[in-house]
């Protein structure tokens, strides 16, 4: 459904990213669109701006996309990816300051009820508060 906020998961590890996305799909269901990416352009640990952009494009809808990241470079690269694609995007993209797995499940649960991007981000960020 395109009337839910979509989730993008960006980890240094492709396995972590896929695992987190699997948890979201299994626990929350298919109605929230989830995309993920992990690993650098050579397949090692790291993040890849091009892959992050592709993941965002894949799930972007009018209600926007909430991005969950793991450590340092994932956040910096995600910010860079979002800035570089600012002109082409249909909806808003926000980074959530939340743990990647728990934040993704919380964000998707909130999104499944049709919540706004702001509400989805707050729910993800609430997890540790």
């Amino acid at each position: 459904m395109t009337d839910c906020v979509a989730i993008v998961i960006v980890s240094h590890s492709p396995e972590v990213a896929k695992g987190a996305a699997d948890m979201v799909r299994e626990m929350v269901g298919e109605e929230v669109r989830v995309a993920y990416c992990g690993g650098n352009s050579e397949g090692g640990l790291g993040t890849d701006v091009g892959a992050i952009q592709a993941a965002i494009r894949k799930v972007m809808g009018p209600k926007g996309v909430a991005v969950l990241v793991d450590l340092g470079g994932a956040e910096t690269n995600s910010e860079m990816a979002i800035e570089l694609m600012a002109d082409e995007l249909l909806g808003e993209v926000v980074l959530c300051d939340a743990p990647i797995v728990e934040g993704a499940v919380m964000a998707a649960t909130e999104a499944s009820g049709g919540a706004s991007l702001d509400a989805v981000r707050s729910t993800a960020e609430e997890f540790l508060s």
Binding site: S41, E42, T47, N77
Partner: peptide, 15 residues
């Protein structure tokens, strides 16, 4: 650099 580096140094040096 932004597209190839993969760590935080990519966006930093790239920017």
């Amino acid at each position: 650099l932004v597209m190839k580096v993969g760590g935080a140094s990519g966006p930093l040096y790239g920017s």
